[in-house]
């Protein structure tokens, strides 16, 4: 019953990419990573049982580890997690049908890498600042402070709503400031949806290898200037997950 297998696709790469022996794929035990080549392109794949549930945390981590590791040595076009095809023929069909788009996209990612900047507000610090800036909210805060929720629910909701709106404005401003600070050091940037109501910044940047050092330095400054207000994290170098949307084959 579990005999049928398919190929899990990780990413599209130039055909000279060779998986290292320790490359581990999805599945339990981890699948062996292989390449299916066609002309000057290739796809990183591994065999998976079709009955096997894929999407365990280890699978996601394996997927990202493989793609990020590949991105360090070669351009790679991530294929959406969970894509499984019947076999090598399907992979070559795919490469044949979209050769030009894939090749062009890989060219664009040559010597470029993604970094994601994700920052979260310190809630207390943020709200203190917002109240200091907004007399109406501060007055409302005085009214509710220390009173049980049951008595002050209306005011609390109003206050909370004012704060939520101010947080949103602040988030927009911080994202703009971040994008401005990075400026020309990124080839492209892609704003990401906030993942939490205390998200301060969340932007993906595509950065050329020659600019990486300067890019990190600029972010150090950005983070330092906001040390008490925002916990700023830099994720990467990553495969260009946020920059493939233009190459999606939706139709």
């Amino acid at each position: 019953m579990a005999d049928e297998t398919g190929l899990f696709l990780y990413g599209i790469v130039p055909s000279d990419v060779e998986p290292t022996p320790d490359a581990a794929g999805v599945g339990e035990p981890p699948g062996e990573v292989d390449v299916v080549r066609h002309r000057d392109l290739a796809v990183l794949v591994s065999e998976v049982g079709l009955e096997e549930p894929i999407g365990r945390p280890a699978d996601l981590t394996a997927y990202q580890t493989l793609l990020d590791g590949t991105a360090e040595v070669a351009p790679v076009l991530p294929v959406r997690f969970g894509t499984v095809v019947t076999g090598p023929d399907a992979v070559t069909d795919l490469l044949e049908a979209h050769h030009e788009q894939f090749a062009a996209a890989l060219d664009e990612f040559e010597d470029r890498t993604q970094y994601t900047v994700h920052g979260r507000f310190d809630e207390q610090q943020l709200i203190s600042e917002l109240l200091a800036e907004n007399p109406d909210a501060a007055a409302l805060a005085e009214q509710v402070r220390g009173r049980p929720e049951i008595e002050s629910r209306e005011q609390r909701i109003r206050l909370g709503e004012m704060i939520a709106q101010a947080v949103e404005l602040r988030r927009e401003a911080e994202n703009r400031a971040l994008i401005d600070a990075v400026g020309e050091l990124a080839v492209r940037h892609a704003p990401r949806q906030p993942s939490d109501e205390l998200d301060a910044v969340n932007v993906a940047f595509l950065v050329g290898v020659d600019d990486e050092e300067e890019f990190v330095r600029v972010l150090e400054d950005f983070a330092e200037q906001r040390r008490d207000l925002i916990r700023t994290r830099l994720l990467g170098p990553l495969a260009p997950y946020d920059f493939v949307s233009a190459h999606q084959l939706v139709e």
């Binding site: 079709l50 996601l60 294929v79 095809v85 994720l235």
Partner: peptide, 28 residues
């Protein structure tokens, strides 16, 4: 793990079934 989920899910090239590729399953 939250980073991984946020970074990779819902990203990447989408291969649609109409390109004659035998897509077994795409878990969107």
């Amino acid at each position: 793990l939250a980073d991984v989920v946020e970074t990779v899910l819902d990203k990447g090239v989408v291969i649609d079934a109409q390109v004659s590729v035998a897509v077994v399953g795409i878990q969107l």
